[in-house]
Computed example of a mutant assay.
Amino acid sequence: MDDDRAIELYAQFRASYQTKRVHDIVQQPNLSGGQTMTAPMIPYIESADDFLRELFNSVNDFRRWINTLDAWRQVYESCDEIERLSLLVEHIRPYSTLALGGPQAIRGRIMYAAAICCGHANYVLHGDNPNLQWDGVRNLNMKIASGIGQPWANWKELAPILSNKLGYGAIHDLTDNYRNHHEHGHPRNIGMGLTASVAVSANEKGQRMWSFGPREAITLETVIEQTAEQHALAVEAYNLLCALAKEQFEALMQFTNSLYPFSPLPVIDGPWKGKKQAYSIGTFEVQGIEIANPLTILQAGVERVRYYRQKNTSGWVWSIEVPENACELLRAAEAEIRRFFPD
Rank of each mutant, 00 (worst) to 15 (best):
A99R: 01
E285M: 03
P151W: 01
A6S: 12
E8W: 04
R21M: 01
K273N: 13
E225C: 02
E336K: 03
R179T: 14
A48C: 11
G147R: 15
Q27W: 00
C117A: 14
I92G: 06
T175Q: 03
Q35F: 03
A333R: 15
G169I: 09
K165V: 13
V267W: 05
F340M: 08
Q254F: 06
G288H: 02
L55G: 07
Q150C: 00
V267S: 04
V235G: 08
N312E: 14
T227N: 05
Q28C: 14
T68E: 07
Q226S: 05
A11G: 00
S211A: 14
H23N: 12
Y123L: 07
G301M: 06
T68D: 09
N139D: 12
P264S: 07
M111V: 05
D24A: 14
S16W: 00
F13L: 03
M41A: 09
S314M: 11
W210Q: 02
V235L: 05
Q133E: 11
I218S: 07
N131G: 05
E204R: 09
E290A: 13
V22L: 00
V198R: 05
E229L: 13
W65N: 12
V22Y: 00
Y17L: 14
Q254I: 10
V198I: 13
M41W: 08
A245V: 04
N30Y: 05
L166S: 03
E303T: 15
D4V: 14
P271F: 06
L55M: 09
D80V: 06
Q104V: 14
Q207G: 02
V75Y: 09
A332K: 14
A145L: 10
R331M: 06
G282V: 07
I7A: 08
L9M: 11
A234H: 05
Y168A: 03
H186C: 05
A278G: 10
E8I: 06
R331L: 11
F262E: 12
P94Y: 09
I25F: 09
E77A: 07
I25D: 07
M142Q: 07
L244N: 13
T219R: 11
V286W: 08
K20T: 12
V317N: 06
E225G: 01
K275I: 15
I148L: 04
T38K: 00
T227G: 04
H182F: 12
F255T: 08
A196F: 08
K275S: 14
Y260N: 08
P261F: 12
